[in-house]
Design a protein around this nucleic acid. Structure first.
Lengths: 259, 259
DNA sequence: TAAAAATGGTGCGATAGCGCACAAAGAGAT
DNA sequence: ATCTCTTTGTGCGCTATCGCACCATTTTTA
């Protein structure tokens, strides 16, 4: 893979790369666009590699680009005054970052932090708005995605209210796994705890249970899922609700139809 | 007030009424529309009175109308498999019900239940879509509202994770108060507990504390807020975040500008 | 290769909230 | 005025989670 580093004024860690292995269609939203639309923006899609921990958007910051993850996973979360944090939703290759650009607010009170380093295609905000304002397939797709994201956020709220740490961990692992090509995630218990807004020890205990049950195995910063359906049966209904709603709203059949 | 009861196939409790006292501009979204747009839909806005407990939308149900509350308050919530429930967001005169109509999904996994009986203006789904698809002020306003609603849902998630019942009660009282003309809400502790997804006894205790502190006073199904700023200082930051974001996105100045 | 840092395991007391049972106090109905 | 139903108050044991402290092990750095 040929990697080209580019000086970047605001955020030096982001690196523009070129690669034959990458294709915009690795992002499922870009893949769902009609060829005509994708061709129109293809030359302006810039492949970037983004490392773990990078902050893509800050609370109140202005958006320069929208990001379509391919291999990266980004966590939307809120940072409280006392420093505690809670994840609101995750975004991977099924989604896009920066919806407030076309929703009209241009920013949100939340943060977007990279949870799994990897690649995204990005598009200049102005170009995204241009395409959105054609009020065609791009607009319809983005609005459908936004609705699916709302379901994910809603279930986060429900799950935070009613479900145990173990159930939430199962949900979170499954949602993350759906965005990865392998069944191994590179992630410390501390980081997962931060996502779920619980103590690290709580994750240690829940993950220990899952390992003893043979559903996962882990070693320092690596979790391998051994039994996916076992995890599903141990997760709360929230995972199923979110997954089903994403499928309903964003399957090819659904997005092909006009609304 | 002259009240006209109308036979209504699906939901007999909803009553179409006519009244000189009512004005679409009592709903702040309708009030924010340019005169030209409002005139176009004015004749199709139907004033309806909706009683406490009425279910406006069910999980998976098809939308016939969008509803713009004036005096009613509607709770969006999710009903779990075991019968427990949790509020995702509330909608009053600042909002609209039925956004999934124009977002493209036409339904959601959640329910919309009337929390405070009152009036809404409703508009046939087809007409709303027609106006939305002009891609003009109506569309921009609806998308801005949707973004504000997402912030409310997000803060519900954060609040459920990190804040005490008392803090959540303060937040909820303040958000509800902002949608009412008086400082008294008609609401049993049991109902509030259902909204927040906690035990009724938890509300009894928290409300008792607030009453002893002189911030509210209550009697069987009626809560009067005596000290609004006292409640605000006792609430978590979530209330402020939501309120500020609604103001930012939906103040007249913001909505007048094109995005 | 030694030191330092990161990561995960474990124990323990504190606490917020739950589930349940039942009593007390309004408010409406007869 | 009495009865009944709804609503609120209270007590009690239970559980999940928290906050903290400390150790062991693995990985990285010097």
């Amino acid at each position: 893979m040929f990697t080209l580093s580019v000086a970047y004024p605001r955020n030096k860690k982001i690196v523009v790369i070129m690669s034959a292995q990458h294709d915009p269609k690795q992002n499922r939203l870009l893949a769902a666009l009609p060829a005509e639309v994708l061709e129109r923006i293809a030359d302006d899609l810039e492949l970037v590699s983004i490392p773990l921990g990078e902050v893509l958007y800050e609370s109140g910051g202005q958006l320069q680009h929208v990001y379509f993850p391919t291999t990266a996973i980004v966590s939307l979360h809120y940072l409280m005054e006392n420093g505690a944090s809670a994840e609101i939703a995750g975004v991977g290759n099924e989604g896009v970052l920066g919806i407030s650009l076309f929703m009209g607010g241009n920013t949100t009170p939340s943060l977007a932090t990279v949870q799994t380093g990897g690649c995204c295609y990005r598009l200049k905000g102005r170009l995204m708005l241009e395409e959105f304002n054609r009020a065609g397939p791009m607009m319809r797709l983005m609005l459908r995605y936004t609705q699916a994201l709302m379901t994910q956020i809603s279930q986060t709220a429900v799950c935070n209210r009613h479900h145990s740490i173990e159930q939430q961990l199962c949900r979170w692992l499954l949602l993350t796994l759906d965005r990865l090509p392998t069944n191994e995630l590179t992630m410390t218990q501390e980081l997962i705890a931060g996502m779920l807004g619980v103590r690290r020890e709580g994750i240690t205990e829940a993950a220990g249970n899952l390992q003893r049950a043979g559903l996962i195995s882990y070693r320092r910063g690596h979790i391998t899922v051994l039994d996916r359906s076992g995890l599903e049966s141990r997760a709360c209904e929230c995972y199923g609700v979110v997954k089903k709603e994403f499928h309903r709203l964003l399957s090819d059949a659904a997005t092909a139809k006009e609304h």
